[in-house]
Design a binder for these strands. Sequence first.
DNA 1: CTCTATTTATTCTGTTTAGAAGAATAAATT
DNA 2: AATTTATTCTTCTAAACAGAATAAATAGAG
Lengths: 120, 120
Amino acid sequence: MTNERALSEIEQLVLLALARLNDDAYGVTIRREIEVRGRRPVSIAGVYSCLERMEQRGLVESWLTEPTPERGGRAKKHFRLTAAGVESLVQARQRLDRMWAGLRIAPETVPATARRSRRP
Amino acid sequence: MTNERALSEIEQLVLLALARLNDDAYGVTIRREIEVRGRRPVSIAGVYSCLERMEQRGLVESWLTEPTPERGGRAKKHFRLTAAGVESLVQARQRLDRMWAGLRIAPETVPATARRSRRP
DNA sequence: CTCTATTTATTCTGTTTAGAAGAATAAATT
DNA sequence: AATTTATTCTTCTAAACAGAATAAATAGAG
């Protein structure tokens, strides 16, 4: 059945980029989305090898599109989420939600000075 | 800018386990927390090497505690978050929040098992 | 019109190291 | 000595990086 292996951080970010980019998701735009919105530097080779890996696992699927009439506008390899990809993305999110649930340090309440925990 | 390296998934989970376990955080309990709450199998060697790595980066700190009067209760190496650890944890969370923001696939709307914790 | 330069996009090569699996070791109690 | 809890060690695979190479398109000089 579906491989239960957890997603690495980059795998999560790539899947999330796919979810946002919709029809415009290919190597370069995926990388840009992660770097701009995620503020997370990532190598282009890392993005591609990650995509290839996830395609083999059935989390994403790809197809070639026609060249576009612009400089360097060669045919692109586009990607989209599969149902399994969406599911494992949601599971990764739920896992983190469970781990965060009830913790005193919450992202919205922490400025830069996190309160030290007291002894119970 | 982002001179700090991003956290891997396991690094995040270990830091979150530390945040919850407070004074009771050491190799075995950290692993258990991740496996039970995170439902994420992780090797014990992975936990320790992750901890060592993060200690060198200043994200956690450790100290040895006294043996306890129970079978196998040898001295344990306890860990706690540093301020830098809290900060990078929060940044990792905020990064994912930004990536998730506004996506139509939301954890609470997708599969049947999604249920927010009751906590007003 | 042709040939080279430039741009966008992907793939390849080599390297480092995170993390898994499992054995080995350490230190406590029974 | 045997058992239990805890940590460390050894070996191995593959994820991710850096950077070069390649591919395919248009632009521009002549």
